[in-house]
Design a protein around this nucleic acid. Structure first.
Lengths: 187, 187
DNA sequence: GTCTATACAGTGATAGAC
DNA sequence: GTCTATCACTGTATAGAC
């Protein structure tokens, strides 16, 4: 049983890479089978719901990762707010840079698969924005807007970094957005 | 001859809507035929290169529109720089709001069709960023970065507006980004 | 120039041998 | 539990009647 769980988890990791590379629609079962090293039979054994369940599992895995590595640290009172925000920025820079500059939720939000995964997509962004506000000082006006703006800029930086094929655009744009935000939070 | 050109142009407009709705991969020829009202024979008469040529024609049409309505006004010395920037913002807000909150170049940049249209995608964004800088006062340091940041924020606002299904996110985020930029430009 | 019919590859998904 | 063979279907693209 744990063996199976592990193998399924391994498959989910491989699936995430396939979806990042080919997109949801472009990830054919043939490509999935090839990149995961699993035959279609095995894939349907792990994911009886087919490709949609595979993508669901991937999105869930990514969401859990963000909960653990991004949202919870943002909410943790152990460190000062600004430190939590800079830590988040470093984390997501590393995360997306090491994952082909693709945010699966952002990509799915712009693709034809948007409606199918609408709930998860919405949750990913609302959770992120809410967690970010938790790292703000108290009494900030328009905290929701400021948090929204930073998350939006991160997503836009990913779009532009992909369009221009330049990872530096991601890093630079995000870090400048942080400076703007920190300035606003400090009044 | 002009008749044909007009009908092809009409087809391109309809095609743009189909690609916005279904994405590139999701836009089947059946759907295209249905939404354009043209049979496959007619479509291949207009676009011998098939779907790829259809998408090329759409991207070209959008690029020309942006050249005329966005980039050139940004460069026009007739009006003061800040006015040109606010005009651009109003234009693109209207444009994307009336087009399902989809920027085809941004969507293509995140999809599996990115490489196929890489040149056009890159040109769209570099032209936009360059034109925006032309509306800045002279001697601004990091003008390229500031312009990149605004374009990135617009794209990110589109991602978030789609993900949250809320057009107000587009409007609000863009307008706040303008305030930040104007403040930086004024020193 | 536009349509219908069709070719043929590739899709997601399933069945059954092992 | 994993594979191979195969299913029905849809995809793009083409051919040919009109």
């Amino acid at each position: 049983m744990p063996r199976v769980m592990t193998e399924r988890a391994d498959a989910v990791l491989a699936l995430a890479g396939v979806f990042r590379t080919y997109g949801y629609g472009g990830a054919s079962l043939a490509a999935i089978s090839q990149h995961t090293g699993l035959g279609k039979g095995s894939l349907y054994n792990f994911f009886p719901g087919g490709k949609e369940e595979m993508a669901e599992a991937v999105l869930e895995q990514v969401a859990i990762w963000f909960q653990d590595e991004v949202y919870r640290p943002l909410r943790s009172p152990d460190r000062p707010g600004p430190e939590r925000i800079t830590a988040m920025i470093e984390t997501v820079e590393w995360y997306f840079t090491s994952r082909q500059l693709v945010c699966l939720f952002g990509a799915f939000a712009l693709g034809q698969e948007r409606e199918r995964f609408a709930v998860r997509i919405r949750g990913y962004f609302t959770d992120w924005i809410a967690a970010l506000q938790a790292a703000f000082p108290e009494g900030i006006e328009d905290a929701g807007q400021l948090a929204t703006d930073l998350v939006a800029t991160i997503q836009g930086a990913l779009v532009l970094a992909r369009a221009l094929d330049d990872p530096d655009v991601l890093k630079g744009t995000i870090e400048r957005a942080y400076v703007v935000l920190a300035d606003r939070l400090a009044h």
